[in-house]
Design a protein around this nucleic acid. Structure first.
Length: 534
RNA sequence: GCAGACGUAGCUCAGUUGGUUAGAGCGUCGGAUUGUGGCUCCGAAGGUCGGUGGUUCGAAUCCACCCGUCUGUACCA
């Protein structure tokens, strides 16, 4: 016997994957619906591509194509072609557009939600399968398309219940970063590797602060466990320039208020939030100018940012919802111009009650070269991605989700298991369903009646319908209010009394089934509202 | 990938310097109560002590390797 047990299969979930509960699925559906509503209102249309793509279509633009299974899940098809599970929704869109370029009317405004897969180390809140919700404009070269993306991200945050001031869309431009690297002598193909190291170091600003970034730009940095990360090896002059750039966006309130234009404005009676932001932007652009005067690439990046800023300001988004920020880096490979990301500004606590650094919940940018790989012709595009799973974790801990719990069904209990009686119970159940009330007939072993109520209780059923032969003969039913009954249970300690008093149970005419159930459910809903109010 | 910590029942954890049959609480199931949830009481099931190999008369305990989890770090399209 023991041997049989040894051979027993162990049920186990693959590392980094999760099963989703009813509550999770409902919360995700609700979130996706709200995001979709925003995208639709902006005039975007849905498209869907499969989870698998040929590996070369996903990864040709990557420098590390020689490692087909690093980071992605790949398999070989019957014909020995490599296929991979998609790791984002942008590369598949590029493939779709390129393949259908003659049928698609450009500019193509499109959105899609879907699961993506990454073969990397999972952590808390980090999975190997997660959902993204993307929007892209393909075939629009002007930065007005990028400005619109930023505004749409802001609207999406608010549609999800994140208050204005609790999030910010930070915008930068890869050309500005490239300009600074030119200025410190890292231009040219021979320095590509070091440029990448510098970008990675900059990306760590929110994690390690300016001091940590400076170490990574120089010799390197040692972490808590004593592990050493080799740095970019820049000299102190170059490090200072990069740190200065990152610091350009870090302007204190006092400095902004000392701005000459701001002082004049204040003399006339105060400064609105949008004016404060405008002065802040002026100071940021001034800082860019001082650092980038020698780089034409950098200056054109700055000009693009200026245009984006003017556009979002004109549309009323210049009140702190969207900010120019020199420390935004984003995806290291294919972005060519403006990059943007959405960041939450409130504290997020995990299951243990610890405050965690949440970072960005979505981001994107302009990728003018991605589709050209397939078509050979210029097809500029810009778009962004929202990490649905990640954002949901944040919202769940905030209590912004899970409010709209679905009510468990009314349980029609079974007192008598012969076919005739079962038919009558089934018919009652259908009558409730036809009236739009969620209901089910007990499907377990009917002979243990106590178990039926126990089942109803644990399932969270609001009501139980009971009809034994006595009630049947009288044309009646018993309706038990399980919520009220649970409340009363606190006052009864003796089991015999508890059973015989049949707490919170009413008798009704069978003909009044729907009417009585409706009234009792309405009363419970009213109680819940009242309780929430307190 | 690198560095560190940790793996005992479904869950949370005890387990003495290496010593007989590895325990508790919670949960699960059954009964007290075949037409009434909760409480209470009684009873039961549930463990290759993460795996493999080694040291030893003897290993949950010591050693090596592997697997897994967690933390930091790298990578993250």
């Amino acid at each position: 016997m023991a041997k049989v047990k040894q051979d027993k299969l162990r049920a186990r979930l693959p590392r980094g994957f999760v099963d989703r509960s009813a509550a999770d699925i409902r919360a995700t559906d609700a979130m996706v619906a709200r995001i979709r509503q925003v995208y639709e209102r902006y005039g975007f249309d849905p498209v869907e591509t499969p989870a698998f793509e040929y590996t070369d279509c996903l990864g040709k633009f990557l420098p590390d194509t020689d490692r087909p299974n690093a980071g992605v899940f790949s398999v070989q098809d019957d014909d020995e072609q490599w296929m991979s599970l998609r790791y984002d929704l942008t590369a598949p869109l590029a493939r779709h557009v390129a393949e259908n370029i003659n049928e698609i009317q450009l500019p193509y405004r499109t959105y899609r939600a879907g699961w993506v897969f990454r073969n990397e180390k999972p952590g808390p809140g980090r999975f190997r399968q997660f959902m993204q919700f993307d929007a892209d404009t393909v075939g629009a070269a002007g930065v007005q398309a990028d400005a619109e993306m930023c505004m749409m991200m802001a609207d999406t945050m608010e549609a999800l219940g994140i208050a204005r001031g609790d999030y910010v869309i930070r915008v930068n431009n890869r050309k500005v970063l490239d300009g600074v690297m030119e200025a410190i002598g890292l231009g040219g193909d021979e320095n590509a590797e070091r440029r990448l190291t510098v970008l990675r170091a900059i990306d760590k600003l929110d994690k390690f602060g300016p001091e940590g970034v400076a170490l990574l730009l120089g010799e390197g940095r040692k972490d808590e466990s004593g592990d050493f990360t080799k740095g970019a090896g820049l000299n102190s002059d170059a490090i200072e320039k990069v740190i200065t750039l990152l610091d350009v966006g870090n302007i204190s309130e006092e400095v902004i208020k000392e701005h000459p234009a701001a002082q004049a404005r204040r003399a006339q009676g105060g400064m609105a939030g949008s004016e404060y932001e405008a002065h802040r932007a002026d100071l940021v652009f001034g800082g860019y100018s001082r650092l980038l005067y020698s780089s034409s690439t950098g200056l054109s990046g700055q000009a693009e940012l200026r245009t984006i800023w003017d556009l979002v300001k004109a549309a009323g988004y210049g009140d702190g919802r969207i900010r120019i920020d020199p420390s935004v880096v984003r995806g290291l490979e294919y972005y060519t111009g403006p990059v943007y990301e959405a960041e939450l500004l409130f504290d997020v606590t995990n299951e243990k009650g610890e405050v965690v650094q949440f970072g960005s919940v979505g981001g994107g940018g302009r990728y003018d070269g991605l589709i050209k790989r397939f078509t050979g012709r210029d097809v500029p595009a810009t778009g962004f991605s929202i990490g649905v799973s990640r954002l949901m974790t944040a919202l769940k801990n905030l209590g912004k989700l899970g409010d709209e719990d679905v009510l468990a069904p009314v349980l029609v209990t079974v007192m008598d298991g012969d076919t005739g009686a079962l038919g009558r119970y089934q018919q009652m159940t259908q009558t409730l369903r036809a009236a739009g009330i969620r209901a089910e007939m007990y499907q377990g072993n009917w002979k243990k009646f106590g178990n039926q109520l126990k089942y109803a209780d644990r399932r969270g059923c609001p009501l139980a319908i009971i009809q034994g032969s006595d009630e049947r003969a009288a044309g009646e039913i018993q309706i038990k209010d399980l919520i009220e009954g649970k409340r009363l249970s606190g006052e009864i300690t003796d089991n015999v009394t508890w059973r015989e008093s049949r707490p919170a149970q009413v008798t009704a005419r069978e003909a009044d089934l729907v009417e009585t159930v409706r009234a009792m459910l309405a009363a419970q809903a009213e109680d819940r509202r009242a309780a929430k109010g307190n």
